[in-house]
Amino acid sequence: MNPDENDAVDAFERLGLTSYEAKVFIALHRLGSGTARDVARIADVPRSQVYSVAESLADRGLLEIQQSSPMRYRPVSVEEAQTTLEERFDRERERAFAYVESVNDASTGEEEREDIWTVRGRSRVTDRVIDLCSAADDRIVFGTRLSGLLTDSIERTLEERATAGLSVTVVSRSEAVRGRFRALEEVAVEEPPAYREADQRSGRICLVDDDSILLSVVDDDDSETAIWSAGSLFATVLIQLIEASQEVRR
C-alpha cells in the first residue's frame, strides 16, 4: 500500500473498521465490483479471509453481495458509506456517554474524596488557573516569578474578577509582572519576601478563596507541571500553611 492508502486504512480503523475491512472496502471501490479472487489480487488480504470480511462489511451496510458463482461484491457509494459510518459513530458515542453519565449520577451523594490533580504543559496550566479564578467567590492570590507565565488571558481574568468586587492580589518579584497591574486600583500588588530570591524552579501559585490551590514548577526543559486541588480539605490546610509561613517570615 502507498502512504496515502495506509493513512486511509488507519482512519477507517479509528472509525471502527478492522484493518482487513478497510482494505477490502478500499479495494472494492478501486474495482467497482469483484470476486474474492479480484479483491485478494489487489488488497493485502488473504483470499480465504475476504469472504468473512465481506460478510462483515455487508452487515455494516457498506457493501452488497451478489449471490452468484462465484459471489461478487459491490461497495455502497462513498456518500452512503459516509452517512452509515457517521450514524454508527453517533450511536456509539451516545451509548458510551449515556453510560458514563449514569455512573456519574450514581456517585452523587457519596462521600467526597480529597482530590489532588496533576496537569502538565503551560497552556493546560494556564487553563486551570483561569478555571480556578473564574470559580472564586471571595478572593484570589496569584503569583509568579516569570513574566511569561502571566498570560494575557490570566491578566484579563484577574482584572475582571477584581472589577466584580473580589479581593485580588498579585505577588511577584518581577517588575514586569507587577507593572501590568499598577494602573488598576482594584488589584493589590505585592513583592515576595527576600528569602525567595534564590528560587529558580517555581512557576505559578494560585490561591482561591480558602479551599482551592494550584502550585506549579518549571522543569529543566522549561516545561511546566502543576498540582491543584479545589474545594478540598487538602487545599485548605496547604493554604493555611503557606500563609502562616509568610507571616512568620515577615
Score class of each variant (00 low, 15 high):
191 E>T: 14
214 L>G: 02
151 T>K: 05
123 S>A: 11
154 I>V: 15
199 D>S: 01
144 T>L: 05
204 R>C: 13
125 V>C: 00
110 E>D: 07
207 L>W: 00
197 E>L: 06
189 V>Q: 04
191 E>K: 12
176 A>W: 09
187 V>D: 00
101 E>Y: 10
212 S>N: 02
111 E>L: 12
94 E>S: 13
182 R>F: 15
130 I>P: 01
93 R>S: 12
129 V>Q: 03
133 C>S: 10
96 A>L: 14
174 S>W: 09
127 D>H: 07
179 G>D: 14
206 C>E: 04
125 V>F: 04
195 Y>N: 07
102 S>T: 10
116 I>C: 02
195 Y>I: 10
151 T>G: 03
200 Q>V: 13
106 A>H: 06
113 R>W: 07
183 A>C: 00
123 S>Q: 11
100 V>H: 11
182 R>E: 15
209 D>A: 04
160 E>I: 03
164 A>D: 15
158 L>F: 11
148 G>Q: 10
114 E>S: 06
137 D>N: 14
165 G>H: 10
136 A>T: 03
95 R>W: 10
174 S>C: 06
113 R>Q: 09
206 C>N: 00
184 L>R: 10
167 S>I: 10
210 D>C: 01
114 E>R: 02
213 I>S: 00
146 L>E: 14
155 E>F: 10
182 R>K: 11
167 S>G: 12
164 A>V: 06
118 T>S: 10
172 S>F: 07
153 S>Y: 11
190 E>D: 13
155 E>T: 09
208 V>G: 01
133 C>E: 08
158 L>N: 01
178 R>S: 12
214 L>V: 03
134 S>R: 13
147 S>W: 08
183 A>R: 12
136 A>C: 05
204 R>V: 15
189 V>F: 09
94 E>M: 12
165 G>N: 09
207 L>I: 14
171 V>T: 07
153 S>G: 04
190 E>H: 10
164 A>G: 13
142 F>W: 07
152 D>E: 15
149 L>T: 02
163 T>D: 15
189 V>T: 14
208 V>K: 00
190 E>Q: 13
208 V>Y: 04
139 R>Q: 14
130 I>L: 03
135 A>F: 01
96 A>M: 11
140 I>L: 08
138 D>L: 04
171 V>Y: 06
205 I>V: 13
164 A>K: 09
167 S>V: 14
186 E>Y: 03
163 T>H: 14
119 V>R: 01
156 R>C: 02
162 A>L: 06
212 S>C: 01
143 G>M: 02
160 E>Q: 14
